[in-house]
């Protein structure tokens, strides 16, 4: 390598390092895996994911190991001579057909169990109807008269305009904040009814594990629950392409202990009744 080239390389490396150093310390480098989440379902799904990941890793070690071994051991440059008579081997081929079938059966059993559990919405204590709009969510607590829209927070919306000049890093929960979050009680099985007003959307909060499409003219259902000891704010996004602002209709869920939730709901019911009264007068 010539000196000029070496200097060029060195300055390039230095440039990349400088760029890396300016990144915030709480960088997302450690975001490598699915969140375990805060619900029974999300943990079941996480476990299923990890089972699959480990099985695939073990199979990968064997298959990649065999490939690498072949590439190292049977090189022409090392004087390897081809064995032109090695055409097939019925026993070996039967083995690598049957063994994968057995592994697949091993994977299938837990996945069937979990799927049956996921799809069982019976015994829910609260039903919330979610309607997707271009580009916001509408929530309705069935049987209470409480309903409201939930859309991208103003500061995120201002910062996300093309060449807005606002640094997204200066906005709290950039693109993952709304004006009015969905509020749910912890420790409660909640049935979600999903539909849409215009095009297909999908409601997804990774910490709850589940995602389901909201389809105009149809009602889908799923259930979620938040662990009793994990009240807090959980964030997600629309997951089905729904037009220009698909990336800008976040979901924020405020999970409160049941007593607090009841108080909140009663207050909302009173407000809703008040506004209905005002409307009729």
């Amino acid at each position: 390598m010539s000196i000029a080239k070496r200097m060029l390389m060195r300055s390039a490396v230095a440039g990349v390092l400088a760029a890396l150093a300016t990144m915030p310390a709480h960088a997302g480098w450690d975001l490598l895996n699915m969140p375990k989440g805060v619900s029974e379902l999300s943990r079941e799904i996480y476990d299923m994911h990890m089972i699959m990941l480990w099985i695939c890793t073990v199979i990968a070690v064997f298959t990649f190991g065999a490939m690498i071994w072949a590439m190292v051991r049977f090189r022409k440059s090392k004087g390897a001579v081809a064995d032109g008579k090695m055409l097939h081997n019925a026993r070996l081929e039967a083995a690598w057909t049957i063994v994968p079938v057995l592994i697949l059966i091993g994977m299938a059993i837990p996945s069937v169990e979990k799927l049956i559990k996921i799809e069982d919405t019976s015994g829910s204590e609260l039903t919330i109807k979610v309607t997707g709009y271009q580009w916001q969510w509408h929530y309705e607590y069935l049987g209470t008269g409480v309903s409201f829209f939930s859309r991208l927070a103003r500061d995120s919306d201002a910062a996300r305009q093309k060449r807005s000049g606002i640094d997204p890093r200066s906005v709290e929960h950039y693109l993952l904040n709304v004006d009015k979050p969905l509020v749910v009680p912890t420790g409660t099985k909640i049935r979600m009814l999903l539909t849409a007003n215009d095009v297909i959307h999908a409601w997804w909060v990774p910490d709850f594990g589940m995602k389901r499409d909201a389809i105009p003219g149809f009602i889908n259902e799923m259930w979620i629950s938040v662990d009793e000891d994990k009240p807090g704010t959980y964030r997600g996004q629309c997951a089905e392409l729904c037009g220009a602002d698909h990336g800008f209709m976040p979901i924020v869920v405020d999970a409160k202990p049941p007593a607090e939730f009841r108080a909140w709901l009663e207050q909302q019911m009173a407000a809703a009744a008040g506004s209905r009264l005002a409307a009729t007068e």
Binding site: M23, A27, G28, L31, P35, L175, G236, L241, H246, G247
Partner: peptide
């Protein structure tokens, strides 16, 4: 796995790196 949906033109900060 960390939760970034596909087909979005802009994303939350944790997906930057």
């Amino acid at each position: 796995l960390a939760g970034m949906p596909r087909r979005i033109p802009d994303y939350a900060l944790q997906f930057t790196e």
